[in-house]
Design a protein around this nucleic acid. Structure first.
Lengths: 193, 193
DNA sequence: TTCTTTATTGACTCGTCAATCAAGAAAAAG
DNA sequence: CTTTTTCTTGATTGACGAGTCAATAAAGAA
């Protein structure tokens, strides 16, 4: 049965299964066996391709970040002024692909993991810095010196709403949350006018 | 050596040790033995008094909530108008006792736990509802119908900054974070004037 | 065909940890 | 001075899970 070039397929399946499993369990305390079973293979194969549990988690995290990054870049490309770029950045965090229960659960757990794994912390910092500089860059022309403060405030609210809605069993809270942050943005812009 | 009335002392020591251990490890993935050792007793004794690991966690969580609740009530008692009550509520979340690394780590992990333990979820809901209703109650006279939205926004920002500063190794970020939320409050009040 | 590379797994090892238990030690009660 | 109650732990059990390994199987290369 072994066809060649299975590696990328297996890796992708494992990454997806990892996020789903974290979402289903709501914790990082899941076994390699369960991940592997969900991805349709033996646990030995998971070890074979990733080397260990930690590296499976980190790969899942990198994937989540990559998807998110791509979504932001795509949305930015379609906006032509600062305000719509800001709106695009905010909305990107709440797209269907990013605001699913499993993904939120994964994010939450990655925040926790970042407290004990320096690699996880590194990745999270990359996300935070990217978000912050994207916001500041587009806020500067609109709110001047307050850009930094406002960016911090918006980023904080995004993370906070993420955290809170991770618990909601409510399905369509994504829109609400996004609108919430957009409203804050508008208020901040008004404040400087 | 056994003196009488050890139970409350042992329980308190275990609760404190649990929070410290979570803070030190940055994860809920800690052993009963380590908690017990930190509290100066054998793991068997921890089981004797609490029955099981889960219940130790929940007790630690209840304690954290209790301390926080007391702090809010105390601060509220000393404020006599809506604005200073709101400021007191906000500041309470960032006191030295609540904004210590270990406590933040504990909160974060409790959020994670709430995804799989319904008792943890229940406790977290109590905290969220209490915060929300405290905010709304004092905001209503100041911002009218917007009270609900503003409360959500402030609560979201509090949680978000908490989350973000859980990672900072920066020690004195507590003040910064509190000032941040207070500034948002001022902006919201101005918005309605 | 024979050899090598890639894919794959079941079985096994080794460690860890939650939970239990029987037994000891000290205070208080009788 | 016994007995009972409260407190305490070392040792043990039983389960579970990460990681390893030897063995199998297919596909291509020689």
């Amino acid at each position: 049965m072994p066809k060649l070039g299975m590696e990328p397929i297996r890796r992708a399946a494992l990454v997806k299964a990892t996020i789903d499993e974290i979402g289903a369990a709501g914790t990082l305390d899941i076994t390699v066996s369960r991940i592997a079973k969900r991805a349709g293979m033996s646990s030995a194969l998971a070890h074979h391709y990733f080397g260990g549990k930690d590296q499976i988690f980190l790969a899942a995290m990198r994937h989540t970040l990559t998807v998110y990054g791509a979504e932001v870049r795509g949305a930015l490309a379609m906006a032509d002024d600062n305000v719509s770029r800001l709106q695009a950045i905010i909305r990107a965090g709440f797209t269907n692909s990013n605001f699913r229960r499993e993904v939120i659960a994964a994010w939450l757990n990655f925040y926790v993991l970042a407290q004990s794994s320096s690699e996880a912390q590194r990745l999270l910092m990359i996300y935070q810095r990217r978000l912050h500089s994207n916001l500041v860059y587009n806020l500067r022309p609109l709110v001047g010196d307050r850009a930094d403060i406002v960016a911090e405030r918006i980023a904080g609210l995004i993370d906070g709403l993420y955290l809170r809605h991770g618990l909601d069993q409510n399905g369509d809270a994504g829109m609400d949350a996004a609108e919430h942050v957009l409203a804050l943005l508008q208020a901040e812009l008004r404040e400087t006018t």
